[in-house]
Simulated scan of single mutants.
Amino acid sequence: MLVVTIDRPQAMNALPPDASAEMAEVFDAFAADPAQRVAILTGAGQRAFCAGTDLRQHAEGASVGLPSSGFGGLTARTGLHKPVIAAVNGAAVGGGFELVLACDLVVAAAHAWFSLPEVRVGQIARAGGLVRLPQQIPQKVALHMALTGRRMPAQEALHLGLVNEVVPEDGDVMVAARALAHRLLEAAPLAVQATKEIASLAARGAHGDAGWGEQDALALVRAWRASGERQEGAQAFMEKRPPRWS
């Protein structure tokens, strides 16, 4: 399990470009390491998950370059079939919210909230939020957020399906995120990755109507078929024991 913590609480965990480049390297290594099967992304402190990028760079006319994998090394990343959990410990604003939208599962603290306030400061949400948000919640709700910058509290996000779990005020969002990660680690590794790949293709409109014949052409599905995970899962079920995934 990989835990990535944005550690700039004094700046509400806002990311300068060099931090995005550093995070890109971290997620590159995660993708390439077969021993790492799930990642958790969170922020330091309790105030903010991530407040996006530093607006002072825009005010000073600086050119804000990002790695090819996008803001935080994640928002434009392709081909990452391992699950990433967002542990939202506070405000997720602008690019920070877009990082949440790029994650697969979301656990949020009760005081957390989400917003895309870019239009209020003369900017446009360009790190995938305007595409992903209408895919994940009703379009008119998404437009209301994007056009006005309104804040969505954690409980509303849970109701709309944007968040998987809201941790009570007396709880710990990282404890809940680790518990969710351990549930993922109990499942067959290649089956999890192939499942994410198929679901991601369907969400993008690709292979949406594909039968299993076409899905079998996917590399991860072929690897899963050759891995023996199905046989081990069935054998463990018959023997009433936890499966031993290789």
Rank of each mutant, 00 (worst) to 15 (best):
C103H: 03
K240E: 12
L116Q: 05
T148Y: 06
L66M: 03
K196R: 13
G72Q: 03
A199W: 07
V192M: 15
V167F: 06
P153G: 11
V119Q: 12
N164S: 11
W212L: 14
A62K: 13
A110F: 10
I6F: 03
S69K: 01
L220W: 15
C50D: 12
A217D: 04
K82T: 05
T195C: 14
G61I: 03
S115W: 00
A236P: 00
L2Y: 14
Q155W: 08
A11L: 15
D54S: 06
A236K: 07
C50K: 00
R241Y: 06
K140A: 15
G161N: 13
K196W: 12
A35P: 03
V4D: 08
A62S: 06
A226N: 11
T195N: 13
T5P: 00
G129H: 02
F49E: 01
Q36C: 10
L41T: 04
N13P: 01
A188Q: 00
E232F: 02
Q10H: 08
G233K: 04
D170W: 15
H144R: 14
L185I: 00
I40V: 15
G73C: 07
H111N: 09
A210P: 02
D7G: 03
R132G: 01
I6A: 04
G211W: 10
Q193A: 10
D7K: 10
P243W: 00
P243T: 07
L74T: 04
A110N: 13
P168D: 14
A31K: 11
V175W: 00
A157K: 01
W224Q: 07
R126H: 04
L74K: 07
A127N: 13
S20C: 13
I124Y: 07
A217C: 03
R8L: 14
V175P: 02
L143A: 14
V64N: 09
G70L: 13
F237E: 03
A181E: 10
A125W: 11
R204Y: 12
G228I: 05
L220G: 05
D104L: 12
T195Q: 11
Q231S: 07
Q215W: 02
E186G: 09
V119T: 09
T195H: 07
F49N: 14
E156C: 06
T78Q: 14
N13C: 08
A21I: 00
K240R: 08
M23Y: 01
Q235K: 10
T5C: 10
L147D: 04
E186Q: 13
A199D: 04
V119G: 04
A206Y: 05
A59I: 11
V100Q: 06
C103E: 02
L80F: 00
E232P: 01
R126N: 06
A19F: 14
R151N: 05
Q136Y: 02
M23G: 02
T5Q: 15
L101R: 01
R8P: 11
R132E: 03
L130A: 15
M238V: 05
D216K: 11
L158G: 12
Q135G: 09
V84I: 14
F71T: 00
S115N: 12
H58R: 15
A236T: 05
V3E: 13
V175R: 12
R151F: 02
A29E: 15
M238E: 05
S69A: 11
